[in-house]
Simulated scan of single mutants.
Amino acid sequence: MDDALEVKDIEKVSNHDVNAVEYLLKWQSHPDISKVLEFFHFACTSEDINNLAHASMLKESLNVVVFPVVDTLIKAICKLAEDNASIPMLSITHG
C-alpha cells in the first residue's frame, strides 16, 4: 500500500502512471530490478497495462457475475420447459 501511495504522489508530478511506477522502481534500486529496469517502459506502456487489466477484469466478471447468472437462467428455462412440456403450443408444429 505504501508503494501504491508513493506512485500516486509521483504521478501528481509526472502526470504519467507508468512513468511513476518506473521512477519508484528506480528509486528503490533493488538489485534484481536494476538488471531489467531499462525494459520497463518498453514492456509497460499504458496500453499494454490497460489491455492486460481489462482482460483480467473481463475474465473475472464473466466467472464471478455473468456465468453464475447464465447458469441460473438456463436452469430456470429448463424447469419451465419440463413443467410445461405437456401443454400444446401452436408454434411447435412449425419446423
Rank of each mutant, 00 (worst) to 15 (best):
M1Q: 06
D2A: 04
D3Q: 04
D3L: 03
D3H: 05
D3N: 09
L5W: 14
E6V: 03
E6D: 06
E6C: 03
K8F: 09
K8C: 11
I10P: 09
I10S: 06
E11W: 04
K12E: 15
V13L: 15
S14F: 15
N15F: 13
H16W: 03
V18I: 11
A20E: 08
A20C: 10
V21T: 01
E22S: 07
E22D: 07
E22W: 12
Y23E: 10
Y23H: 10
L24F: 02
L24S: 01
L24R: 03
L25A: 07
K26V: 06
W27D: 15
W27S: 13
W27N: 13
Q28R: 15
S29Q: 07
S29A: 10
H30A: 02
H30W: 02
H30V: 00
P31L: 07
P31G: 03
D32W: 06
I33C: 08
I33Q: 02
S34F: 02
K35M: 13
K35V: 07
V36D: 04
V36L: 05
V36Q: 10
F39T: 09
F39M: 05
F39L: 14
F39P: 03
F39E: 11
F40K: 02
F40M: 02
H41K: 11
F42R: 12
F42A: 11
A43I: 03
C44V: 00
C44W: 02
S46C: 10
S46P: 04
D48C: 05
D48W: 00
D48P: 00
D48V: 01
I49S: 02
N50P: 01
N50A: 13
N51K: 12
N51M: 09
N51R: 11
L52M: 07
L52T: 07
L52A: 05
A53N: 09
A53W: 11
A53K: 12
A53E: 08
H54C: 08
A55C: 08
A55P: 00
S56C: 11
L58R: 09
L58M: 07
L58G: 03
K59F: 05
K59V: 05
E60N: 11
E60K: 12
S61Q: 14
S61I: 10
L62D: 08
L62H: 07
L62M: 14
L62G: 01
L62Y: 12
N63C: 12
V66C: 12
V66Y: 14
F67R: 14
P68H: 03
P68R: 11
P68S: 02
V69A: 11
V69K: 12
V69P: 00
V70P: 01
D71I: 06
D71W: 07
D71K: 14
D71G: 04
D71C: 02
D71S: 13
D71A: 11
T72K: 12
I74W: 00
K75P: 00
K75L: 01
A76W: 08
A76F: 13
I77H: 03
L80N: 08
A81R: 05
E82R: 08
D83R: 00
N84L: 00
A85I: 00
A85M: 02
A85H: 03
A85V: 01
I87C: 06
P88M: 02
P88K: 01
M89E: 15
M89K: 14
L90V: 13
L90D: 10
S91E: 08
S91C: 09
S91N: 08
S91R: 06
S91K: 07
I92C: 11
T93D: 10
T93P: 00
H94K: 15
G95S: 05
G95A: 05
